[in-house]
Design a protein around this nucleic acid. Structure first.
Lengths: 141, 141
DNA sequence: CTATATATCTATAGTCACTAGAGATATAAG
DNA sequence: CTTATATCTCTAGTGACTATAGATATATAG
């Protein structure tokens, strides 16, 4: 009759299932991103299905680059009675903009680095592109 | 006869010319990335051309994503008697690899986010792609 | 010159998102 | 029951800054 009761697990098991360090889970609890779970008689944290879901969400959002603060408000929005996905989408869109800017910046880096490296002849040449590049100052203000 | 003597400037001027905050300059000094400069009679830091060059280098390398530790060793390499650009290039190449990986990761994010957002119909639809997306847990281990 | 405004000084604490360690207790496996 | 492993709390450290408070120095105006 217990084909699918809610799983109970310790912090280690939760950590394994979410690929999240134990310390990080406790840290999330401390900052309010995760709720205080019930405890065993000996004081160990006991987690259930809901915790697993919530932490999975948090980890997914974090690897997508959302800040903890952002995630906190996303969770709050999604927990409102009627899921107001409009507001969630708005936040996600803002974040997407930010991600795109970061890609741009990194691609600029990549260009500069790879071009500079291409011009470097590994010490055989007295005037080396890398050293030169770094040594010049861009003085325009 | 003083057509081009070495400029002397305070920390504020140096900050302006390198677009680097005053506090950051002092922080770099504290961590050993910048040397202790000479002081005025009243104890204010006095910088010259060399400091400007060094700080420009540091800022450029930082915006290229090099870590402070990395920059420290780059500077050490470049200050060796004979500029051994081979080692500098080696470090730069390693870093380039890292930059490329970060671009990849961000592009994955971008994909996921923009696809998910494209499927969201702003609350008009009861089953929203964003909410769905975040709510599913990827359980593969 | 003085009076004021601005710049700089030191030292300390805060940020974000974790990560690491010490030392004590709980639970699981043999 | 003994041991091994897991978990507990609390504190401090990371990187690269940023911010604050309160004191002193320098630049500018009159």
């Amino acid at each position: 009759m217990d084909i699918k009761m809610d799983i109970k697990m310790g912090i280690g098991a939760l950590a394994k299932r979410t690929r999240c360090k134990v310390e990080t889970i406790r840290y999330y609890e401390q900052t309010g991103l995760m709720p205080n779970p019930p405890r065993s008689s000996g004081g160990h944290r006991v987690y259930g299905d809901g915790h697993l879901k919530r932490l999975s969400f948090i980890r997914k959002a974090r690897t997508l680059g959302f800040s903890m603060d952002n995630i906190k408000s996303l969770l709050a929005l999604m927990e409102a009675d009627h899921l107001s996905c409009g507001e969630v989408a708005e936040k996600a869109e803002l974040h997407l903009k930010d991600v795109r800017q970061r890609i741009q910046a990194l691609q600029n880096m990549e260009q500069t680095l790879s071009l500079t490296l291409a011009d470097c002849h590994r010490g055989s040449n007295p005037e080396c592109a890398i050293i030169d590049f770094f040594t010049q100052d861009a003085d325009d203000d």
